[in-house]
Simulated scan of single mutants.
Amino acid sequence: MSFLTVGGDGSQRPTFFELIAADRLMPSLKAAIVFSLSVFAQRRPILHKVLDWEDELFALITAFLDRQSLASSSSTFADSLYGLRRAPYVREGPSKSLTGQQQKVTLLLLVVVPYLRSKLDALYKRHHTPSEGFLGLSAPQPAPRRAPLLQTQGSRSGRLQEALACLREAALAAFMKAYPFIHMAQEGLTFSYQLAYLLQSSPYFSPTLHLLGQHVVRTSAQELVLSERSKRQERRQQLLGVRSQGNFLWRALHEGLLRANYLFTDHTRNALILAVFGFRLLEWWYTSAEEKLAAEQKLEPPPPPPPPLPSPQGVPLPSDPAICPLCRQTRTNPAMTSVSGYTFCYPCLFNSVTREQCCPVTRIPASIDSIRRLYQST
């Protein structure tokens, strides 16, 4: 099976692994930005307020990066790093660029869908409290009882508040039951599209691309040259239009702002990627140094606690430690209770614990599960 195919317009189809890497770039970028803000917040507590709005902050960053990239090359920020672009899907003929309306719809989905998904995941994790059940599976927890609202008799506002509270609880309970199935269906649908793309049965890599009627294609060298030439020509016309308007100060200020905007737009992507990689490098560097310093300052482990003392009502201990306290014979097939640490013959200890539910020496409560067999290495 070939992962490199050529479309009807002669453009090379992106590989599955390139699209996977581009799809995971933005979540990795968000994790790096949140981690960086968390580190800086240790020195600047005001940044904690920014972390409270991390989803909104990253939505704005995504909107800015993808808007610039879509306008210049019909590609998202992640796709542009791998030399890819989006185009309306046609079975035959050249792949055209996205229109202005298609760019707006694409940008809306790229920003809104991840934002809503992040908010729904956070809401589910905040209210989900699994418990250990049989074989480690999560057992359902009974819903906590809601405290009754204090209201005066015959108060319309009190009844309205109680009705709204009941409605919110019912909506939250329905969401908690339905969201795992919705998430499973979404992940299964995404996996099906990716598998179909891998097997070359579908031109769409994701359900979002199918919904938009777009597919991802490689950006050829000729398209890059034409895009760069068109961008320079458009900027030249903008500067010429500014130079022919207003007085000297207005023209200089407007031209300076335009040139600053061009410089910022051209280098934002590379600067952001370099900053993230640079911060990750510093993080690894200082983490290694801290671990080495902490390893040199390790303290010795404390001594074990003393064993429990024998109880006056318990079985007396023999003078010879090789003798079983119960049968008073040389110990065979040794075993111990984890609650006390005293050693007996396994049959003697098993019968005693089964009958009295405690350690024979210390009388500490014990069960059969606390019996440990001892094996002597040869």
Rank of each mutant, 00 (worst) to 15 (best):
V34A: 04
A22W: 03
A71T: 09
L57R: 04
L25H: 03
F16S: 04
I46M: 14
F58W: 12
V39E: 04
K30G: 12
F16N: 02
A71R: 13
L57Y: 06
R43I: 10
D55G: 04
F16D: 00
S69W: 04
M26V: 06
A21D: 08
P45L: 15
R24Q: 15
S72T: 14
S80H: 06
W53T: 07
L37A: 03
S73W: 06
I20K: 01
I20T: 10
L70E: 06
F16Y: 11
E56G: 06
F58D: 14
A22D: 01
E56Q: 05
F77S: 03
V34M: 02
M26I: 11
F17S: 02
D23C: 01
K30V: 15
R44T: 14
Y82M: 09
S28N: 09
L60V: 14
A22H: 01
L81Y: 03
F77N: 02
V39A: 01
F35Q: 10
A63G: 08
V50E: 00
W53D: 05
M26A: 01
A63K: 08
E54T: 09
F64T: 15
D79C: 00
A32P: 00
A32G: 07
A71Q: 15
A31W: 13
V39C: 02
L70D: 11
E56S: 08
R43A: 13
L60E: 12
L29D: 07
T76Y: 03
R43F: 14
A32S: 05
S75H: 01
A41Y: 05
R24Y: 15
H48S: 10
D79L: 01
K49Q: 09
S73I: 10
V39G: 02
L57H: 07
Y82V: 03
L81V: 02
A32Q: 04
D66P: 08
V50W: 05
D66T: 01
S72I: 10
R43C: 07
E56M: 09
M26H: 09
E18N: 08
L47Q: 08
R24M: 14
L19E: 02
T62V: 11
R67C: 14
R24W: 14
R24V: 06
K30T: 15
E56T: 10
L70H: 11
L29H: 09
V39P: 00
L51C: 05
F35K: 06
L60C: 14
S75L: 00
P27V: 05
V39N: 00
